[in-house]
Write a protein that binds this DNA or RNA. Sequence first.
DNA 1: TTGTATGCGTTATCAG
DNA 2: CTGATAACGCATACAA
Lengths: 371, 371
Amino acid sequence: MHTREISLPGATVGGAILPRASRVTIRDVAFEAGLAVSTVSNALAGKDCVREETRRKVVDIAVRLGYRPSALARSLRSGRSLTMGVLVSDVSNPALVDYVRGVDDVAVREGFTILLGNTDERIEKQVAQMKTLIDHEVDGMVLISQHTEGKEVRELLKIVPYVFIQRRSPHFVDDYVGGDNAASTRKALTYLHELGHRRIGIITGPTASSTAMERLAAYRACVDDLGFDRDEDLVVYGDYDLDAGRRGMHRLWSLPEPPTAILASNDICALGVQDAALELGVSIPDQLSLCGCDDISLAGLRQIDLTTTHMPKRRIGTAAAELLLGKIEQGPNLPPQEIIIPGDLVIRSSCAAPRAKRRRRRAAAAPVAAE
Amino acid sequence: MHTREISLPGATVGGAILPRASRVTIRDVAFEAGLAVSTVSNALAGKDCVREETRRKVVDIAVRLGYRPSALARSLRSGRSLTMGVLVSDVSNPALVDYVRGVDDVAVREGFTILLGNTDERIEKQVAQMKTLIDHEVDGMVLISQHTEGKEVRELLKIVPYVFIQRRSPHFVDDYVGGDNAASTRKALTYLHELGHRRIGIITGPTASSTAMERLAAYRACVDDLGFDRDEDLVVYGDYDLDAGRRGMHRLWSLPEPPTAILASNDICALGVQDAALELGVSIPDQLSLCGCDDISLAGLRQIDLTTTHMPKRRIGTAAAELLLGKIEQGPNLPPQEIIIPGDLVIRSSCAAPRAKRRRRRAAAAPVAAE
DNA sequence: TTGTATGCGTTATCAG
DNA sequence: CTGATAACGCATACAA
């Protein structure tokens, strides 16, 4: 049990394989086969310049010795590491993990390995991680909700192919995959409009998030198009977490004239709103309608039952990884590509027609019956 | 914009730095400094065999050229990759991500990079991923809720240091970090006992999970010690997901004599129980008490408010990573170590005294007031 | 204090 | 078809 032979380096005894102190290399295989290293390499690579018989013998010995080629040496030699970096602000954030999963799906499918890094939304950490990834010679990187600006970041991006997810630069056009923030926001707001809402609050994600800002812009456009109350107090600049939801709810509900519906930055934020609503004794959807974004698996639970926009994050992740692989394959000459994945409104029970029109300025359109 | 010089290999013009087609190597630095490669290497490594003046010049040129040592080459040469593998059944599983985060915490602190892999609870995938990690010469690996048995798995474990999290082998003693499953289960059951419950159902995690089985064993012990109903129908073999909770609840509630309380495999499972309870019109905690395990951040929300056992997963992750680093440092001669991290019962509102003693066999102890 | 030579494990080139 | 050799980028032992 727990034996680890401290055998003489390179020693092989009879038929038994005593693993060397370190690993079995191609040289060991060559020696055992009585062939040259290069022949073994060619045989294992399936080159047709080696006789079938020899190849079989080599393969045989290789598996018998438990030979595994060193990815390090191979990468060093070939210039490709079959490795991709994935940067995420926090792996433990449930709103982000599905992207990682999607990326991983195609990574394993294509024989790539993932180097993972957390950046905690801090640009210095991101820069440090990017450097680390580059040091490890990743063939490319997927940047999930990362900073897109900053001199150092842009400089590092020149070194290696990359794809952004969920956050894109206002100044640079990069390879990017994301949800259709404008369209899905409009869908949600149209739905609320049909229910009869005219005064809608929004809790945004961080201002650094292009996705959040695109949703906000869509909200503002809808204020015009659909005739919602225009009131800057209805816009709360928040985040993607529970606390943003809680604070946003408190803030919006303390308004002289509170909204009848709230659009949360994402589902987690919406859960925070629900929580605060319970705290304040506000009934959802009777007194307040609530709409999230993401459609995390928990949103469908009866105790939550959140109307939300379904964002196929895993698919966004796979699309990004595939885009990246194309980039790696084709070289940097391809023009940057932006892929927008549509999302659908999932209607559950957190939205209803506004109950009583308390001191409203203008009359609402005919409200649809709730639920 | 988007320029990538296709300059002549190695060409440098004046003071400006035209990056070569590939990367800046130590040779470029040496050339620029008019020194030997080894001197540059020593200077950058901070060896005291190089004059301070020379060192400064070297460093200066290195940063000016944007030189970054190749981790690949360095690893190949030094035999240490400053890399650790992390295997997890599914990164997108909220019950698991905190471990990853904890591991990452110490990884970055110690200058390590994480290679991540999903195994989907399937042993072939795990074996494949372990091989990949070994190919990449990780210095060690953290196996989160992975298979501990199997000839191939055990064979691969001999090659590289490793630490298991949340699942350990019944046959082998490995390095392991996990929660105190027995103690925390007993705490929860004692609490339910004090509330007056005598008939308690349990939905277990997968039988392959040692953590799940340890909790089940503790449950069985408590049945004896605390005098709960002994009834195998009260044990539902399930999983760690929503659906296990839903199915478990349906199963338990359809019993001729349903339990008055349920112990779920984890919080996610408990959410599934809540969901099914709402579906069945069963009120928690009035008709049924519910206890989870993990204390995920969502458990504290008012709309969920789940009594559960707090498991400090992130800390378990850091402990595991630290254990692994020690293993890497000290070599394989240290005896395997098992670290058990205590967890505390977090009392919220999902448990209460059983309401009415419907056709019970024996009288319960004096019930404590609910909430 | 600095330079030269060698090897880590591969693969590619070219000669046999 | 097979084999010797050089390189990938770095670090070390040793020579100068």
